[in-house]
Amino acid sequence: MIIDSHQHFWIYEAEKHAWLDDNMKIIRRDFLPEDLKLVYQTNAIDGCVAVQADQTLAETDFLLDLAEKNDFIKGVVGWVDLRASTIDEVLNHYSQFSKLKGFRHVVQVEADPNFMLRPDFENGIAALEKYNFTYDILIFPHQLGAALELVRRFPNQKFIIDHIAKPYIKDGFYDGWAALMKAISEYQNVYCKLSGMTTEADYNNWTPEQIEPYMQLVLEAFGANRILFGSDWPVCLVAGNYTKTKELVTNFIAKLSSQEQAAIMGGNAMQFYNL
């Protein structure tokens, strides 16, 4: 099965989706399962993991409702306030939904580079393991140091890095990001998504050759059994289309064995998220 491990749905609201700046005008509209279903038919995708784009419990419920009505949505990564004193009760409530696989916090917008190491946040991370929930790490490269410390402190928690930690591909920055990605990959409880790369490059002028060194580092560091294909649809539309986004990964991994390609394009997502 080919599984898209990372995509979003939303009903567009200017205030709620203020992060869609003028460079992203093209995606200031609704994106719902009926839109994605057509895209998947064209691109031979069997299913997906829907990931939160808004930090509310209503967002989690919205995605679960869509997943219940659409079989191709195989899993949901929602949001809860991991810092809440009631986190155990909240997770206990959500543990009844079989398609809810894990949670994410938009750490990239947090001003404190050590946000993930605060005691209240770590208390929430500690609670995830009890319910077998995963955690998606959404950060910029300057937050990789904190992420490294987090995964070291929770060796039994399943973590996955979204968008290869958003390196500054457009500016050609590589070395600092690469060193920390190698360090974090040494922890076997950490996986990484080959996703969101074209939007960290120049939207209009990126080339596969420009992005390849970043993908190569991730492949060498994590190995074919801990990396997942993800489109980041509809955000990827800002820098191309779905087919180009998918081909960036499939062309890159074409040199690998058929088993390794199958793992990256779906098997690893099924295993990591228990789809």
Rank of each mutant, 00 (worst) to 15 (best):
L237P: 07
T134W: 00
G240P: 04
I160S: 10
E110Q: 15
H8Q: 05
R152W: 04
D202T: 13
K99S: 10
E209A: 15
G47N: 01
F9W: 09
K255H: 14
D4G: 03
D65M: 03
P33H: 05
F154W: 08
F72T: 05
I139H: 06
L64I: 02
V49M: 01
A126C: 08
F229H: 07
V77M: 09
R28V: 03
M1W: 02
P234L: 00
G230D: 03
L57A: 03
I164M: 14
H163F: 09
N70C: 05
W19V: 06
Q188Y: 06
Y191F: 15
N70V: 07
I169F: 00
A178V: 11
D88K: 13
I11W: 00
F133P: 00
W19M: 06
D22E: 15
K182Y: 12
V249W: 01
Y40R: 00
H105P: 06
Q7M: 15
G266E: 10
W10I: 07
R153W: 03
Y12T: 11
E110Y: 10
P119T: 09
V39W: 00
A44M: 00
L228M: 15
D112N: 15
E59P: 01
P167M: 09
D4H: 02
Q157C: 04
G223T: 09
F133Q: 01
N23H: 13
K130Q: 11
L63C: 00
D88R: 12
A179M: 10
F103Y: 10
Y131C: 06
P155A: 09
N225K: 10
E89S: 14
W206S: 02
D71K: 12
Y187S: 13
Q96I: 13
D71T: 12
L219T: 08
D112Y: 10
E15L: 10
R226C: 04
D30L: 01
N251D: 15
D22G: 04
F31W: 08
I169V: 04
N268I: 04
A224W: 09
V235H: 07
L117S: 05
T60G: 02
E13K: 14
T86K: 15
D46G: 03
K101W: 08
F140S: 08
K25Y: 04
M24W: 08
A53C: 12
W177M: 11
D88G: 05
E149N: 07
L128A: 05
E209H: 09
L237W: 10
K101R: 14
I184G: 10
L91Q: 01
Y191A: 14
L64E: 03
P141D: 11
S98I: 10
E122M: 15
C48V: 06
D81L: 03
